[in-house]
Amino acid sequence: MNKVLLLAEILTVASALVVGFHPNILYASVFLLFTFCGVAVMFLYAGADFLAGAQIIIYVGGVTILILFAIMLTQWLYKIKLADLRNKMILPAILSVAVAVFLYRALHQMVATLPLQTPEALEKFTSTPKTALMGHALLGSYLLPFEAITILLLGAMVGAVWLARPE
């Protein structure tokens, strides 16, 4: 049970490393797909069954395919090399390692002082189906953000079509 979660976390981080470091943008976006799948498994083990499904549908089925489309539309048709020229890498590497260490240390210290859920409560939370609960919450106390995000999605869709229109 825990073994699957550990494997998913290793898969997530390893393919995120490939996304960060691979010089070819096409390989990077294919490995982004594996990162999203690993995150979906992590969601599943955190008791977020609906979110795991939404992660697969939106990210794996939508965003990654859209990115692959954009790569092929802008580069493959015109035989431009796929390799991504890099800026200087040392300073960003130092900065991002510092950010990771700082984030983890700060959150670790904060978590150590917080009261957490008991193991029984965690077990109960993980085994409860969340879809009905999320539906009630979205149309109940989160109705205003829900409506706002529908307008945002509509605006983004119209804006994307308008931006990509033919001359």
Partner: peptide
């Protein structure tokens, strides 16, 4: 979970800072 989140976040920052390709920045 926090460790994986921190690592993904810093790799994303690294990706945004180093890539020149606009789609690479989007991946980050």
């Amino acid at each position: 979970y926090l460790a994986v989140g921190a690592m993904l976040f810093s790799l994303g920052i690294f990706c945004v800072l180093t890539r020149k390709n606009a789609i690479g920045i989007l991946l980050g």
